[in-house]
Amino acid sequence: MELIIAIMIGCLAACGTRMLLQRSLFRVLIGLALLAQAANVLVFTAAGLGRGDTAVIAKTAKELPEGHPDPLAQALVLTAIVISFGVLAFCLVLLKRTHRRTADADVDALARVES
């Protein structure tokens, strides 16, 4: 099962990278989002996949059951999701701003503007 998820992560990352390296800044943005997804799943998976239980202690129990998922990784990924949302929004606005300044949304055009 881990193998399938690992391959899936690789595919998502490859798709994200492919998009990041394109000329259209909009695609670059989509690529960033894809890469962020891949990274989140990577951290989540790397901590070990549980057996379907949650990282919440049951009503009657005192501790998590044996083989529970890693709560620390979940906490990390949770903040990562929210932060990548913030960063994505920031980049989106950066894209719009760039477009307004240069009347173009193209990586190459941007390089020309700078130099």
Partner: peptide
């Protein structure tokens, strides 16, 4: 990059 991510996992 994709291969790297997979191997890393």
């Amino acid at each position: 990059v994709g291969t790297g991510f997979t191997l890393l996992t």
